[in-house]
Design a protein around this nucleic acid. Sequence first.
DNA 1: TAATTACCAAGTGAATTACTAGGTAATACA
DNA 2: TGTATTACCTAGTAATTCACTTGGTAATTA
Lengths: 155, 155
Amino acid sequence: MRLSTKGRYAVTAMLDLALNGKNGPVTLAEISENQGISLSYLEQLFAALRNKDLVRGVRGPGGGYYLGKSADEISIANIICAVDEWVEFTRCGGRQNCSGGARCLTHTLWDDLSSEIFNFLANISLGDLVRRNLGKKEEEERPLSVVGDSNSQAA
Amino acid sequence: MRLSTKGRYAVTAMLDLALNGKNGPVTLAEISENQGISLSYLEQLFAALRNKDLVRGVRGPGGGYYLGKSADEISIANIICAVDEWVEFTRCGGRQNCSGGARCLTHTLWDDLSSEIFNFLANISLGDLVRRNLGKKEEEERPLSVVGDSNSQAA
DNA sequence: TAATTACCAAGTGAATTACTAGGTAATACA
DNA sequence: TGTATTACCTAGTAATTCACTTGGTAATTA
């Protein structure tokens, strides 16, 4: 699975939409302001999100974007797939002449990893993130319990 | 964690080295031939691997590359970190002015994912892959049991 | 001394990223 | 009806990365 900053931008923008879209549509100009992403780049991202029905645009004054479905029905994987396409790590579908060699071994490895990442992201919805944020606001400034092991440089 | 084709090339090359390096050093020319990677690109990758002591070069006729340590001591994460650098998904180390907003929420998400991927790859060694290959060779042409759920397009 | 190998530096076309510029189309409101 | 506001669309661009090519130098073997 492709994991680029582009996908991160899209997730961030969608989360902004989920958090601020309770009382009407959110304009790209607002998201641009909030998240520091250029308006035109957002337009491109949202064109892709619209194609997958993850958002719904409303034109004219007072317009903007709504989520295309409920936040609980939108997984992070959905969002990333929409903007990044789903690039297969391996290109031989097992059929090629690389069986048994180092090449196909890494193919299997990458397939497994790809599933791992996908499952992780498919099991987290926008709704989950929103609730995580509410929890954070409730406990005021106290930090969330985060993953303990820092994965800094394996030197 | 950065997951590019570059890292995949490196893993593939290292695996080739582990599989064929039993009876002496393996030349980059051989790996280039086996894996279809250009010689000079391999040289660049191996310069990075050498810096992390993952491989050891021997010059002159009959020279080539050895693994820098035993295959069991080299994790896939080690290899990828060597050639891809470890790019943090988040840039604010938690300290920035994005706490509570959509931006920091996705930061936490990406940190978690990063750990997930790292742990997956850190728990697989080159030795594991080699043994997986031997197992494959033993059962001749019968395919390995692979991950069941295909993660093809979430449409 | 010559061949072979690692090792090193610079440059390149293609792709991607994040962005700018410059539009058109639909809608709300005066 | 006209104007502002928003989404929507197309093209182009500087910076970066990828995978590679070119053209070397350094160490070792025979």
